[in-house]
Design a protein around this nucleic acid. Sequence first.
DNA 1: CTCTTGACTTAGACAATGTCCAGTGTAGGA
DNA 2: TCCTACACTGGACATTGTCTAAGTCAAGAG
Lengths: 136, 136
Amino acid sequence: MSDLLERLRERGWRITAQRRVVAEVLDGDHVHLTADEVHARATARLPEISRATVYNTLGEMVTIGEVIEVATDGRAKRYDPNAHHPHQHLVCSRCGTVRDVRPTGDPLAALPADERFGFTVSAAEVTYRGLCPDCV
Amino acid sequence: MSDLLERLRERGWRITAQRRVVAEVLDGDHVHLTADEVHARATARLPEISRATVYNTLGEMVTIGEVIEVATDGRAKRYDPNAHHPHQHLVCSRCGTVRDVRPTGDPLAALPADERFGFTVSAAEVTYRGLCPDCV
DNA sequence: CTCTTGACTTAGACAATGTCCAGTGTAGGA
DNA sequence: TCCTACACTGGACATTGTCTAAGTCAAGAG
Ligand SMILES: [Mn+2]
Ligand SMILES: [Mn+2]
Ligand SMILES: [Zn+2]
Ligand SMILES: [Zn+2]
């Protein structure tokens, strides 16, 4: 995710060890970690990084659109580095595994005008639920 | 929601003033209250009802399928008495208003087999976001 | 109708997640 | 190398939800 760090730098943000580690920890496909999971992994590389910094850095990455917040359950929000390819989520009801998926068509198109109640509708988030292969 | 109370009774549950008040407070269309909002309204009718009882009663109603839990943001879960008609949600990004909506077709049909990663997919929850008429 | 009893309710402690602040440290330009 | 505005830290605090021990009461039995 050096790309992400470069974008931060271009915005005039200082590149610190903490921000670098958070970006590294969040790299990969189908990554959807909670803030505390990011903190635990970051601590392994940079022992004294604080919870506040992890929350701050994740929040900043969300603000600039490089990371997406995903709330698939009523628990902790998850942070998703796959911000440049619109996608939806498939969640295992038993173990919580999250996969990125791309449904066909635009989900917004399924909501007819007479079901919009005068809203200006701009986005649709879909969470598919089921059991993953490991959970039968 | 005397219907709901009757179902509780049929399951051998005692009908108490607390359960009656929670059921009454949750009655209506497009109702999506948080547990604390339910508690505040219930307190107006039954001053000493406790938070624990509100949480317990809502959880019981969810368990028997008479109420649905809705998590449209990363904040408090909302409780929805419209449990017998499958529907999705339209949320105002500014004021948080939630409306029940019925998209056309089955949302599950939009997820092709090669995007299911071997999961047994059983449900899809859609949250539409936009601005309500009052929020321009 | 009254009694009995096990289910229900309560208050408050505790847990999980997230926010905020004052004091300290440092990245990066001058 | 030095300065200083910005970032980081530890901890207090806020919100949302769970749990438990002790008191209360709904509803069936007699
Ligand atoms: Mn994702
Ligand atoms: Mn609803
Ligand atoms: Zn699983
Ligand atoms: Zn609105």
